[in-house]
Design a protein around this nucleic acid. Structure first.
Lengths: 340, 340
DNA sequence: TTGAAAGCGCTAACAG
DNA sequence: CTGTTAGCGCTTTCAA
């Protein structure tokens, strides 16, 4: 069992042609049930294993999907990936996953590698810093399906899957307002990325809707690194402004901030109300529980996987599905409850 | 830019042979600097991209590493994967990642698929239920490096990377004892997996060391599903025993249990002391903060990636590194502090 | 230093 | 339904 057995070996052994072997092993319609059975059974016994290198070369198809994410180890992204993997696996697709680590250059390199690897489709969530999308041209030129999720950009014929971040941002903000906040701070992420600009826009929408003035001091752009929470605390404490509510672009930041504020003696929600984003499980561990927007990562992954695969199978035309919006949901918890 | 350009196209254009092109593009030693430059530059301009299907077939090597994990979306596993990806990417390896979803059968299928895909090495963390390891024989027969991490099994010539779970289990238990616990419950995972049996053994080691009796009621085997926490609460409350300490095999369970107990009016650590395992960030969010064992997932991933890759590069002989133990560390926090 | 040519193992068009 | 044959695009001896 050390030399690998090929279809030629099987062919010789069974006195048929390699083509017949191939047909038998691939459920090709034009082959008699008998020879098929004979071949499959013998292949089985002989320990034959297909050589995908050869099959891929011949078919110019790999049954592999490339995925590029900013980082693997975040609750949200790993949920998405889990969803994608689940459906891919169920359809005989493999996933090659790589991280851009928020670097445009690495994203570019990964894109090229995945192209060279011959993935049948590419799914990407953009790095913070990506400003130029030329590296995706390879895929578009070759008409290889390209789909963006969560942190997306809008290229012709490339579907996107997200939630309505603008509406969600407005919902979160409106919730704070309805619970009595008059001067809200929004702690956002890099404004290069749709998800953060949209949430920010939604934030301003809501202020506007309720006749609250938006001033530049109502917004801080961050890299969402919870380690840098002290900057925000400084802004909160030292600013002339007295903020009575904060809308964070993600839960991790919100929780880190809550911990710091609580330690400093702030009362939440009495002194300041807080809402996060994502519905990370930590939002239900922190006391008081953190209000947030549910952004269903696993479901997003499943949906993304399904739409890529049904496109690859020719079932739907992905290009017609320009952009899919998942439903989000406001989850009101104690961190923002009314205290009047 | 629609038809793909091959080395033959380049060869024709530059009046050299395909072999020369190949040498130029692969930094082969025996080629003149001049022709190399000429070729590389032209390849660049012409938009040439290697076809890995062909290269792989020819070399019987894919620069791809397969990874099988129980599930992608856990804090620990996504940290490990992030570490593996980081080093793999840095060495021009791609990762094909798949989930067994704790099913032995799926793990088996994934193993076969990855074998067929021609991965150069396979890294796996076993599913809960896996009892039979025959599916790995394919790899061993073909001498394809196979490495187990975290949830491991010991097959000849397959290195393993974990922490010393037995010692860690003993450390955790000893910590509770030293803080005054006399009757400790251990909530463990499936005993088929080394990590859980070892922690359990360490638990008994510590009881023994301190002359505390071990009775069957001191242990519950679970699938570590935090949703099933009520069973444990029942056991705690309705048992004749009065437990004054609990050692959980992971933090998620510990936190879920703490939340439930606190809601029922228990005081932690006064009424009962608790320690978890993994040092999941949630351990620093729950109040009181959860004592735990630091199990460095990212570092484990980096180490696992490095050892597989240096083996693939022929730098070290992986078979000599039978098993690597990472350092763990007890982190004492409020959930277990002494209250005498 | 370069070229010719033989694979790598499978698929698919065409013929029978 | 089955066989023949020509690739798929790259790598790698072997000769020159």
């Amino acid at each position: 069992m050390d030399k690998k057995v090929t279809i030629y070996d099987l062919a010789k052994e069974l006195n048929v042609s390699p083509a017949t072997i191939s047909r038998a092993l691939n459920d090709h319609p034009s082959i008699s049930l008998n020879t098929k059975k004979r071949i499959v059974s013998y292949a089985q016994r002989s320990g034959y294993r297909i050589n995908k290198f050869a099959a891929n070369l011949s078919k110019q198809k790999s049954n592999t999907i490339g995925v590029i994410v900013p980082k693997l180890n975040s609750y949200f992204m790993s949920s998405v990936l889990s969803g994608i993997e689940k459906v891919a696996n169920g359809h005989n697709y493999n996933l090659i996953i790589s991280q851009s680590l928020e670097s445009e250059n690495k994203e570019k390199l990964n894109t090229q590698t995945l192209y060279d690897s011959g993935v049948d489709a590419l799914m990407v969530s953009l790095a913070f810093g990506t400003e130029n999308y030329d590296h995706f041209a390879l895929f578009r030129d070759q008409k290889i399906p390209l789909l963006f999720f969560d942190r997306v950009c809008h290229l012709p014929n490339c579907p996107t899957i997200t939630i309505d971040n603008r509406k969600a941002g407005a919902d979160a903000t409106e919730h704070l307002i309805q619970n009595g906040c008059k001067n809200i701070l929004h702690v956002g992420g890099h404004l290069k990325r749709n998800v953060y600009t949209d949430r920010f826009t939604g934030f301003k929408d809501a202020l506007n809707k309720y006749g609250l003035e938006y001033k530049p001091s109502n917004f801080i752009e961050t890299n969402l690194d919870a380690a840098k929470i002290e900057e925000i605390i400084d802004h909160l404490i030292n600013s002339k402004e007295k903020f009575d509510g904060i809308f964070f672009a993600n839960d991790a930041m919100a929780v880190a901030c809550m911990q710091s504020l609580l330690k400093k003696g702030y009362r939440i929600p009495e002194d300041i109300k807080i809402i996060g984003f994502n519905n990370n499980p930590i939002s239900e561990i922190i006391q008081p529980n953190l209000s947030t927007i549910n952004y269903p990562g696993y479901e997003l992954g499943v949906l993304a996987g399904q739409s890529i695969i049904s496109h690859l199978n020719g079932n739907i035309n992905i290009e017609s599905a320009e952009s899919i919006l998942l439903k989000h949901e406001l989850i009101a918890r104690a961190s923002s409850s009314s205290t009047n």
